[in-house]
Design a protein around this nucleic acid. Structure first.
Lengths: 155, 155
DNA sequence: GTGATTGCAAATTTTTTGCAAGATA
DNA sequence: TATCTTGCAAAAAATTTGCAATCAC
């Protein structure tokens, strides 16, 4: 019930999807998706960096934005604004919780359908009138636990 | 247990707070807080617009940013990135849920301590190792329910 | 071939910065 | 008066846009 949006997990599936949308399978589109499959969550410049480091196909930042937003508009990726004021894309668009690391500005997924279900239940009838609920966004704002630093007396 | 961070709900309290921090009670700081008390949730330009429309004190956008970030750093306001890619400040920093209207790019508060409690409970022991949880951010992404539009055959 | 897509460079938008001028305690 | 704050203008950073050149089908 919870994971209803599709994810595209390989290149053949991507090509098939593009075909189904009458979109062309350009090297740039394939590259961006390859980067996204590897990175999971990324901003446009992260994708551009990944491609320039790992591929010999060329792509400009404007095209990266173009491809990423197109994929998000088609509900394959999801879009989110990060704490460091950048637009991040998530290779998966099914419902899940995010863990945001404020130190590295990176995301991890937390899959807990039971929690999402609980929250949805609880919100039944509690949302303000006049709005249509599109989605519920839950993120855990975290920092890496201190490792080699001395313990504080009182926390 | 849930609302632990303070809010400053009047000008005298603000002046006292500033004094306690050895900060000066400049007209700009007072104005920004007056705007925030009125607006509740706002970006820097919204605050600047509010002030230029309702006050005869002058303030530049750089100072608005300066004051807002200072208040957020002091944990009086909270900071969030909105869906329209702008930094919003919230006059309240106690824990609560946000409702984000994607059409008007505005926030409303949803107070539901019981839900927050439930979520915290559920997350006990389920957060990934190596992270310190700073806060839990829940927002309901909404659109105004269509009013005068004709119904679609199938949604 | 032809319409979709990309690259490029400039424009926009938001936020930050540095420093001189001004205001507060 | 001494210092903290602000205004200003420029810089930075992220995203968007317009259009000619190129490419996929």
């Amino acid at each position: 019930m919870n994971r209803r949006k599709k994810s595209i997990t390989d290149m053949e599936a991507l090509k098939a999807f593009l075909r189904s949308q009458k979109l062309k399978a350009t090297p740039q589109r394939l590259m961006v998706h390859e980067a996204m499959m590897e990175l999971g969550h990324a901003s446009a410049d992260m994708v551009a960096d990944y491609i320039s480091g790992n591929c010999n196909t060329k792509i400009t930042i404007a095209s990266v934005y173009n491809v990423l937003s197109m994929m998000a508009d088609l509900k394959i990726y999801s879009r989110r604004m990060s704490g460091n004021n950048k637009m991040y894309f998530d290779v998966n668009s099914f419902k899940h919780i995010h863990i945001y690391d404020t130190t590295s500005n990176s995301y991890k997924d937390l899959i807990d359908d039971e929690l999402l279900e609980m929250v949805e239940q609880r919100l039944q009838g509690r949302q303000p009138k006049g709005y249509k609920l599109e989605s519920i966004d839950i993120q855990l704002i975290c920092r890496p636990a201190r490792k080699t630093r001395k313990k504080k007396a009182a926390l």
